[in-house]
């Protein structure tokens, strides 16, 4: 028996919008810790890891660990039928091949339930160890989105370099080149507008802009984004989900032949 009641149902809608273009099918895992997902894109270049902690739900009942395979496009179709202010409850029964999404309007005058077929998915989980990163950049998520979008009109890849000067995003394409440098800036009105650069050592890595642009679909989930870089690891692009957890995207770098 599974019953998860999320008062801020729009969070789940936003999570689906952030993941459905990257991953087609995924197993949602439910345990005492929370509602989570780990899935790679079809080319095994990018990975999404989601955690919505159990404490963030108004009601969280998960009698035993359960994994539910869902087609994210179909799940998105169903969640789009929920209003932005609706409370969403996810319900499942042991051994059932369906999951039910219940939507309640804020004043309880409309209650809908949508039953979706589950699917068997052979998921490949990767072990992601805790790591020390060479540099961690925290910046407004809208700024990161803007940079990725702007650069992708010039080139296909971006070199992200962190030095003590700041973080530089560079691209080149047929029409020319572009460089955007963001310096640390803590003198802002609100903390989420700050750009904070923690650098243990300089680092420079190349990534496909197509994936970074896909990650920025999570921008509505958080005012700020954290980009963690290490020369030996995939980049981590993390959006914190207030009071609940996070959505993290991992992207393997381009490697010089």
């Amino acid at each position: 028996m599974l019953e998860l009641r999320l008062v801020q149902g729009s969070l789940l809608k936003k999570v689906l919008e952030a993941t459905k273009d990257l991953v087609t099918d995924a197993n949602f895992d439910c345990s005492a810790t929370g509602f989570s997902l780990q899935a790679m894109d079809s080319s095994h270049v990018a990975l999404v890891a989601l955690l919505l902690r159990s404490e963030g739900f108004e009601h969280y009942r998960c009698d035993r660990n359960i994994s539910m395979g869902m087609n994210l496009n179909n799940m998105s179709k169903m969640l789009k039928c929920a209003g932005n202010d609706d409370i969403i409850t996810i319900k499942g029964d042991d051994g059932s091949d369906t999951v039910t999404f219940m939507f309640e309007s804020p004043n309880q005058d409309k209650i809908s339930d949508f039953e979706m077929k589950l699917m068997d998915i052979d998921s490949e989980h990767l072990g992601i160890p805790e790591a020390e990163y060479h540099a961690i950049v925290k910046m407004p998520s809208s700024e990161f989105q803007r940079i990725c979008k702007d650069l992708s009109s010039i080139g296909d890849t971006v070199v992200i370099s962190v030095t003590k000067e700041g973080v530089k995003f560079s691209t080149r394409g047929d029409i020319g080149t572009a460089n955007i440098v963001c310096r640390q800036n803590k003198t802002v009105d609100k903390p989420e507008e700050a750009t904070i650069i923690e650098m243990n050592e300089p680092v420079s890595l190349t990534f496909a802009l197509r994936y970074l642009n896909s990650f920025t679909k999570a921008t509505p989930l958080s005012e700020s984004v954290t980009v963690s870089l290490s020369s030996e690891l995939p980049v981590v692009v993390e959006y914190k989900i207030a009071d609940m957890g996070y959505i993290r995207f991992y992207l393997a770098p381009k490697i010089e032949d």
Binding site: H44, V45, L126, G127, P129, T206, A252, I255, D257
Partner: peptide
């Protein structure tokens, strides 16, 4: 020319 890395080169399956 740079080639695209794969996640399995960095993380092991569990």
């Amino acid at each position: 020319k740079a080639s695209q890395g794969r996640l399995e080169s960095f993380f092991k399956p569990v």
